[in-house]
């Protein structure tokens, strides 16, 4: 498993590092909900320009039984536009309050924040992505996590068609009970809506949704 993860990670870096589009077009709003065995999140953001977005973030982390509410700033550090492909490098950060419901910190609230890099490369057939994040909530929680993805589109559709992607995601949590978790998933993408569903190696569901408006 470790070999597979490192191979995927290497592929992502070789192909270009980048991430999962947390910035929209000028004046665009986006609603994102990402849910897997590690966390359930809701992120609603507005992009004044195509270079950054600001929004609200809710997150529930299953391991430490912790909720986070705060603001999130996403910055497009660079985009590489090529005739048939695109690569992005994003910096994501957030600040707010974390509330714990577990163990010695049960019912405690503390200032919390996170920062991470996200990178992606894709053309219309292939997709690669890598992201990492450091999350801190004082004494309640401190974590470093990262994930990588590769994907392939079995067919190429036009704008407005239903696009389908088959993907494999690997998550790495050095402090977690399971350091590596893999999740095969399918992505459906049509117009301004994106839906992803899968099941990871821990038999936990993955369900993500993005809508731009």
């Amino acid at each position: 498993m470790r070999f597979l993860f490192l191979t995927l990670l290497a592929l992502c870096f070789v192909a270009y590092p980048a991430m999962a589009r947390p910035v929209s077009y000028p004046g665009g709003w986006t609603l994102m909900s990402m849910n897997d065995g590690d966390a359930y999140t809701l992120h609603w953001h507005y992009s004044p320009t195509a270079r950054y977005s600001l929004g609200y973030k809710f997150e529930y982390q299953t391991g430490p039984d912790l909720t986070f509410n705060g603001g999130q700033l996403n910055i497009l550090v660079n985009r590489w536009n090529k005739p048939d492909s695109q690569a992005n490098l994003y910096l994501k950060s957030g600040a707010g309050l974390a509330h714990s419901s577990k163990g010695a910190y049960d019912n405690e609230t503390a200032p919390a924040g996170f920062v991470g890099l996200s990178a992606d490369w894709e053309d219309r057939r292939f997709f690669t992505m890598y992201e990492n994040r450091i999350f801190s909530a004082g004494e309640i929680e401190m974590s470093f996590t990262q994930k990588a993805r590769i994907g392939i589109a079995p067919y190429i559709g036009e704008y407005g068609d239903l696009h389908t992607w088959l993907m494999l995601e690997v998550r790495h949590d050095p402090e977690g009970d399971k350091k590596f978790v893999a999740a095969p998933l399918v992505r459906f993408f049509k117009g301004t809506n994106l839906l992803e569903a899968g099941v990871d190696t821990e038999k936990k569901a993955l369900l993500n949704f993005v809508h731009r408006f």
Partner: peptide
């Protein structure tokens, strides 16, 4: 350059479509 998905198409459509005098915008990803 860089048009690889529906989100990209939507972005160009929205930004150009807002300009005065534009009747329609059509994006061909191929």
């Amino acid at each position: 350059n860089g048009l690889v998905c529906d989100f990209c198409a939507r972005a160009t459509e929205k930004v150009i479509g807002k300009q005065e005098g534009v009747e329609s915008v059509k994006v061909d990803l191929t």
